[in-house]
């Protein structure tokens, strides 16, 4: 794991290509209340981007604007522009259903459907029609579970309920479910906060492996975790994006005192 921290490896050349997602001047309101204030940020492909910041600073809120999950909250309103591959995702021509298939999401608390493990993973491919038949679906389910590192543990009990798994397994199942629709970006909101250290380590390993294929955004309260898994880090405070840059730079040499105070545990 030690070498992971010092691997800003291909970060430089990936950043050179055009970003996967860009946000410009994004503000989010809950009714009258402003929860996110004028945030601009680029999300790069084949990168893990970490969002850190004190509780209530708007990380989850901003994350949910990236696949328009905020649409499901009646009072929420988004201003500004967010693009996926240079396409405005809040444009009327953009289809939310497709958007969410391309920008998947993993939640803080594992939320498997009360269905079998197989059905949980097959759900996305089914609704999006990604498999031509049962055989192809089997392949997708197996592939997703393998990539989520869960296959060996559940291959003999695919018909069992997804809710019968342990917390860590459930979270990996949710990740498998998200990658089964072959998304381009995966958003993770504190995916390991409900898990013990061993399960957390597995999830981190998984994120590390998945990075090769997806752009990953992860919200975390755990500084070590952010340092371990991410290449870029964004620090939020009171709804404002305070600082954004290479993880190594943020953690070793933050420009802002607020960032420094937070990272060194002075508040938050």
């Amino acid at each position: 794991m030690a070498d992971m921290i010092q691997s800003p490896i291909q970060a430089a050349d990936a950043a050179a290509s055009s970003p996967k997602m860009t946000a410009r001047g994004v503000s989010v309101f809950y009714g009258e209340k402003k929860a996110v204030d004028d945030v601009s940020i680029d999300i790069h492909r084949e990168h893990v981007t970490a969002f850190i910041g004190p509780s209530g600073c708007g990380k989850s809120t901003f994350l949910r604007t990236l696949n328009r999950m905020n649409d499901t909250i009646g009072s929420a309103r988004v201003e500004g522009r967010i693009e996926l591959d240079s396409e405005d995702i809040y444009a009327s021509s953009m289809d939310v259903v497709q958007l969410r298939a391309r920008v998947g999401m993993v939640f803080q608390k594992p939320n498997p459907f009360p269905k079998s493990i197989f059905e949980n993973v097959a759900y996305g491919p089914r609704i999006h029609g990604l498999a031509a038949g049962k055989a192809e679906l089997d392949v997708i389910v197996e592939r997703s579970l393998r990539r989520a590192g869960l296959w060996d543990e559940v291959k003999d009990r695919l018909a069992e309920s997804g809710t019968a798994l342990s917390g860590g397994q459930q979270q990996r199942l949710c990740i498998a479910r998200a990658i089964a629709v072959d998304p381009e970006v995966i958003l993770m909101d504190e995916p390991a906060s409900a898990l013990d250290p061993i399960a957390t380590a597995r999830i981190e390993e998984l994120i590390h492996e998945l990075r090769g294929n997806y752009a990953i955004v992860i919200v975390t309260h755990n500084m070590q975790q952010a340092a371990r898994v991410s290449q870029r880090t964004a620090f939020f405070h009171l709804g404002v994006l305070v600082e954004y840059g290479e993880t190594s730079a943020i953690f070793t040499n933050p420009r802002e005192t607020r960032t420094k105070d937070y990272i060194t545990g002075r508040y938050g």
Binding site: N67, V97, F113, P114, G124, I127, A178, V181
Partner: peptide
């Protein structure tokens, strides 16, 4: 739980798909 509904919507299911395949079975 709301999480169940969110989980389905976040995968790109439509509301009716979420209702028929997740909410009602649950």
């Amino acid at each position: 739980p709301q999480a169940m509904r969110d989980g389905s919507l976040a995968m790109g299911a439509t509301t009716s798909e979420t209702i028929r395949k997740v909410l009602v079975p649950a």
